[in-house]
Design a protein around this nucleic acid. Structure first.
Lengths: 238, 238
DNA sequence: ACCTGAACACCGTTCAAGT
DNA sequence: ACCTGAACACCGTTCAAGT
């Protein structure tokens, strides 16, 4: 009896935001679902069916939707954990004494994570960003990118006309480009991180024909994208 | 009577590979379907339903599958036309007298095309490359990229350690990165073409930690990807 | 409270019945 | 030959019936 109670309390501490305490069996199912989903999304991508995840977690299909009102919510729960991990492993880069190397390493860490986790890659480029927790985690990554970039720019090791948003965009760009090649040459992403990073150096820098997108523009575009996705979904159900 | 016969003959000439001549009404439906699909894919992306396309073309759902055995085939038919257009508009770049500018322009033309046609973008990054016609068209683009690149490298205007495959990958990378921003800042792709192109200049070039992927590796990876997609599809139907 | 599988709407695909 | 819509399998989602 006591262990069960304790595990319930631990769960409450773990859950972000202070959700209501779940019944012990419910909490156990939630964990199994998150674990099964994380594994399935990472290896197969986001298109694995809910039924498949439920099977792997050994629960009924309906249980998934009782805990996560929609598949997107399940994706967001898994993905925000992954981004949190990414944030944690990038924070250490702020301490080093090689600012340019740290920017390069930041790109490497993020791209490698996406190369190894197909679901993570698909989610951060997609509508998962609609989820508030995912956005928060993503904003933290944005902030780290900004600090790393500022240090490197102060030293003159990175051109002055690029922004943290550029860094995040380029990280996604590289992750996308290497996707099809990962099965035959799993480390190929390093080449494109190197190549893109060379474009960030001051030596070859030429004026950029457009201004950097602002955070507001990105958010607006994401909102529009989410609204569009919601729109067609509503059309389908209506 | 005569016009109908002529239109039938024209159709036969137009169709690549010398397919059997279609009945006049069938040929008309084929055209309407291709037009409707091209428009729908371009604006909505590849996820538009066959039913929607059939509706726009004013034919029955079954007619689509009579002409194109699968949705992928319809996508491939539309997309190979789009890539052919791209090839045509890039061939002119081989004549100019600014090799570096031509490489930049090549990237611009291809990225702009993908920015304006969502289906084109989704297809060239995906399983559409399984289709032989699409592969042929894509190989032509590859060849042009190679010739443009060689000229620029001979002049010392582009670093020597990048390949035509790198160029094609980076083009896809940029197209991906700008996707979410197009609704608010439709010309933003120019910024990332500039930025990536600066990475191709010799001035800031540093050794790349991995060798360029070979055509064989790419093809093998694509085959694997297609096989995997087919595999899960067969599992679903089996 | 929570679990579950049957039921529903949607989509790609097939096919029997029509011209 | 070709056209068509009803029928099938699949997927995300809902919900009535159970504990």
């Amino acid at each position: 009896m006591l262990p069960a109670l304790l595990s319930g309390l631990t769960a409450e501490m773990t859950v972000a935001g202070g959700d209501r305490r779940l019944r012990v069996d419910a909490e156990r199912n939630r964990r199994r679902l998150l674990d099964a989903a994380a594994e399935a999304f990472a290896s197969e991508g986001l298109e694995v069916s809910i039924e498949e995840i439920a099977r792997r977690a050994e629960v009924g299909k309906g249980t998934v939707f009782r805990r996560f009102p929609t598949k997107e919510h399940l994706v967001a729960a898994v993905v925000s954990d992954r981004i949190d991990e990414l944030v944690a492993s990038c924070e250490g880069l702020l301490d080093g004494d090689d600012p340019a190397g740290a920017v390069h390493e930041f790109l490497s860490v993020c791209v490698r994570a996406q190369a190894r986790d197909r679901g993570l890659f698909e989610a951060v480029g997609g509508v998962a960003l609609a989820d508030p927790e995912v956005r928060t985690a993503h904003a933290q990554l944005h902030e780290i990118a900004g600090r790393l970039l500022a240090r490197a720019q102060d030293e003159g090791a990175v051109r002055d006309d690029v922004t943290a948003i550029d860094l995040l965009c380029l990280m996604g760009a590289v992750s996308y480009a290497v996707g099809p090649m990962l099965s035959t040459t799993p480390e190929i992403w390093r080449r494109y991180v190197d190549l893109v990073f060379d474009g960030l150096r001051p030596e070859g820098a030429h004026p950029l024909s457009r201004q950097a997108p602002t955070r507001a523009q990105i958010d607006k575009a994401l909102d529009a994208k989410v609204a569009a996705a919601r729109g067609t979904a509503e059309c389908q159900t209506a």
